[in-house]
Design a protein around this nucleic acid. Structure first.
Lengths: 352, 352
DNA sequence: GTGCTTGGCTGACGCGCGTCAGTAACGCGC
DNA sequence: GCGCGTTACTGACGCGCGTCAGCCAAGCAC
């Protein structure tokens, strides 16, 4: 009885007006004037009947679902390890709510599909695809059919608006700090296989910083990890093997860095006395690493919010930038310090 | 043109059948027989037109949204620090998908409201409320009106089905390990203020373990933290002040324990040589703590899955247990060891 | 041939809402 | 008194689908 059963017709009858008037009042349409007295009667009746408009009916009639989709394409391990996911999710929902929208989440490991259905069936007005992969057929179909899609992350080919963090600039800033501290032998452990654009971008930032300081790039000093601490541990062992002379390492993920620091401990290297570590993400625990981690902060909430906002813009037809890059911030803590031995040119930008 | 514009009428026309037949075929109704030939014609036509049923229209006609809601009531800090959120979310979506449902997520810090609207407006057929608070008026309204609601977490008063991890048993197992190792002076740092039932339950488990071993409960040895590593750091300082004699601490959250271990380091206590630490959650990083953390594993994915399944059962009217408690598992690593000094009765269950 | 089933399909209604063209009442200037 | 807005509201249609009673032809027993 009380289960939201009242319809707008009931409200109309109780208020002594037509259903149209009820609709006009409750959707708060500005272009049609209804006298304050009538308006009030409608509100009262609606409240008395505990009326709530039936969302599907409204969606059918209005032609809009007022819902956006968030599709998580990351693998299970990525999701599990992504300490910033909650923040990003909050950002998306915040942006959606601000625009009067809801958020439908689809967590689909790559391989499984079917998420295009939620937008093709008009259950959502558009989707944000997080962690897109280049081999995603559904995604290119959607792009071809001009559905509202925003990429959170980046894909080179597809002509879809993307919102991301400025991975390259962030990585560059991190490595530049190491250079400024006097390091010349700097390793790099990626956050993921290089098929992931974010990993590639961060690696590019690393290279840029080296090149800007005329430090030759040495492929032997780059080791790929994949998302979790275990891979970071292994990568650091490999790096220590291949390039024992490194005085600093840029690890492109805090979680991976956590494992890497474990490997340094096990190899009896002190951080930062023997080896400096700078990482990427600034997860909540980073400040409590031992030593506290110097890392590049990702504005996770803002990232979600920006993606949500971009999608809403796209949905209502406002222009959307092809690529939005959110700035990062280097958070300096204690895991990076000048190198141990002769310490050439401490404090000067390069050793030129 | 290609934007999902084809309706079932178009399919019917192309296939040379009625709209009813199209509906019957595409919704795969078992109780009405359609000849294989006709069936095939319908499928072909649908595919040729790239037909996708309009979800809102279907929802309106069928009276079900095939969508469930997941309402996150945790504070922003909790969400940010909840390393297991992604897993739980995956579990919920997995259960939903298995039942043909979608998941709508509402991330609403306490204080903000309005989430009851998604179920009152029939946008979702039911909701899972994660991190429910006792003072949530919307929640009691929903319970009163008999809407399908599943609590993830527990609330004493409300008569709503709940799915949770067995916090008490998990905590008890953790503390029993410490007792078995010979500890008699065991502190406790909660994961949250005791207004949170999970925190209270874990504290109860701690007390039970002590009582079972005839170790007196000392309120001075219990310090409340709140979700993050910073509070764990502070709590441990307090505990060290108040009860310097503790040889072990049960910290009811890995993240809090991470901060607490920082405080131990700063206080020149070694783990586990001077102080043993056992925690709760088993976040992905726990295995890489220094030393690797002995902790109680929460089956996060299964938790979400169980909650999702319970809600689906509730929605279709199947009976649902009033309280489902998922078992935890004590993961023994290196952060707990027998106490330093005389080590009374190592290996025997209690020191009786 | 008649009556009765059965399989295979359709016509028409209804779900609850948004919306537009239209109407009735009213004021106002001349 | 007439024309001409304005204001405040309503009637009726349509959104795209699920569904049920009912229809027709074919098969079968007698």
């Amino acid at each position: 009885m009380a289960r939201g059963r009242a319809t707008s017709a009931d409200v109309a009858k109780l208020a002594g007006v037509s259903r149209t008037t009820v609709s006009v009042v409750l959707t708060d349409r500005q272009d049609i004037h209804i006298s304050p007295a009538t308006r009030r009667r409608v509100f009262d009746a609606a409240e008395r009947l505990d009326y709530h408009a039936h969302a599907p009916a409204r969606q059918l009639a209005a032609g809009t679902s007022l819902t956006i989709g968030l599709v998580l394409r990351q693998s299970s391990e990525q999701v599990a390890g992504d300490a910033l996911l909650g923040e990003t999710l909050r950002g998306v929902t915040a942006a959606a709510r601000a625009g009067g929208y809801r958020v439908l989440v689809e967590a689909l490991p790559p391989g499984t599909g079917g998420y295009e259905e939620i937008v093709r069936s008009r259950q959502t007005d558009g989707i944000i695809v997080s962690g897109p992969r280049a081999d995603d057929v559904a995604l290119s179909n959607l792009a071809r059919d001009d559905f509202p899609v925003i990429l959170q992350g980046w894909l080179p080919r597809l002509n879809l608006p993307s919102v991301d963090v400025d991975n390259r600039a962030g990585a560059r800033a991190a490595v530049e700090l190491l250079v400024r501290q006097g390091h010349r032998s700097i390793g790099c452990i990626t956050n993921a296989p290089l098929a992931y654009t974010a990993a590639l971008e961060r690696l590019s930032g690393y290279r840029e910083a080296l090149e800007a300081s005329s430090i030759p790039f040495d492929p032997d000093r780059v080791v790929e990890a994949e998302f979790d601490a275990a891979s970071g541990y292994r990568a650091m062992r490999t790096l220590l093997d291949r390039s024992p002379g490194c005085t600093a390492v840029f690890v492109a993920s805090d979680v991976v860095a956590f494992g890497a620091m474990g490997a340094l401990r096990d190899g009896s290297r002190r951080v930062p006395e023997d080896v400096s570590v700078v990482a990427f993400d600034d997860i909540p625990l980073a400040a409590y690493f031992d030593p506290p981690l110097t890392t590049v902060r990702i504005p996770a909430f803002e990232l979600g919010q920006a993606a949500g906002q971009a999608l809403l813009d796209r949905v209502v037809g406002r222009p959307v930038a092809a690529r939005t890059l959110l700035p990062t911030e280097l958070v300096v803590r204690a895991s990076a310090a000048p190198p141990p031995v002769p310490a050439r040119a401490v404090g000067s930008p390069t050793g030129r």
